[in-house]
């Protein structure tokens, strides 16, 4: 309808079999539609991003609530109870004075100067690159570590899963696992988001006494404290979560950081 304005009056009078008219109509429909789509997307982007940010925050808050007594600890130790600090993954050291607010994982993982390429044989989570520095959350009381919250990413069946895992002060017991974002198959892989499945991680041990990563997702009948039951019908997604956890807790992920915390006595 809109092309009427932009074309000379003679154009519409042409036969519909005229190649000029065919091309003209095709181009004006394509232009009008692309303007409509890009206009709507650009106009609505801020509202959508606010929604996503609110959702991330709500899930972070839900994770804090999931750990018994954590709210009280944070309330007791003041507003800074949940402290965010930047970690250099290769050294495991905190980066002093690094800006953590507004950290954008995707931008950091794709930028050439701050991303690290993950060697193919160690890329369990199938991410190819990761940021070299990542902010983690830490809960301390009187200088003693109570909880460390590690962000994680990993490829599932059809999407990149984003999650956080909270470890207790022994650095091997899972306090909570929360899936923050995923777009797996609705009804199957998407069930990694259910509270029931996330709760099945609580209390599991991620590493043996010698520090090797032992945690895994198994098919039916998890029997040891290192095993979590997979979701039936969603083997690839469940395994994706397991690989994500194993990668990020391993040497190429937060391994050096966890090692350092343990060496320094928490």
């Amino acid at each position: 309808m809109q092309e009427r304005k932009y074309q000379s009056p003679g154009f519409l009078a042409r036969s519909n079999d005229d190649p000029a008219k065919v091309f003209g109509v095709a181009i004006s429909v394509a232009l009008t539609c692309s303007l409509l789509v890009s206009g709507a997307t650009a106009y609505l982007r801020p509202v959508q991003e606010a929604n996503l940010a609110a959702e991330r925050e709500a899930r972070m808050a839900a994770m804090v609530d999931a750990v018994p007594g954590l709210r009280d600890i944070i309330a007791e130790s003041g507003a800074d109870g949940l402290e965010t600090r930047m970690v250099d993954l290769s050294t495991g050291q905190f980066v002093p004075g690094a800006e953590t607010a507004g950290f954008d994982y995707d931008a950091a993982a794709s930028s050439e100067d701050i991303a690290t390429t993950i060697p193919g044989d160690r890329d369990l989570a199938r991410l190819r690159t990761r940021p070299s520095q990542i902010p983690v959350n830490i809960v301390e009381k009187d200088g003693e570590l109570l909880l460390v919250v590690l962000p994680m990413r990993g490829r599932g069946y059809q999407s990149v899963i984003s999650a956080v895992m909270a470890l207790e002060s022994d650095l091997t017991t899972v306090a909570a696992l929360r899936i923050l974002e995923q777009a797996e198959t609705a009804g199957l892989g998407a069930r990694i988001e259910t509270p029931e499945w996330q709760a099945s991680w609580v209390g599991k041990q991620v590493a043996g006494t010698d520090g090797t990563i032992m945690i895994d997702v198994v098919r039916g009948g998890a029997s040891t404290s290192f095993e979590v039951d997979g979701i039936s019908g969603a083997t690839v997604t469940s395994q994706g979560v397991a690989n994500m956890v194993r990668y990020w807790l391993g040497d190429h992920g937060f391994g050096p950081f966890i090692e350092r915390l343990r060496a320094e006595g928490g």
Binding site: E3, N16, D17
Partner: peptide, 16 residues
């Protein structure tokens, strides 16, 4: 715009 959709590309115009 039905009078101006060329029959040869009508489906693709509609789906667009």
């Amino acid at each position: 715009i039905r009078h101006h959709i060329p029959p040869s590309i009508r489906l693709i115009v509609q789906i667009t």
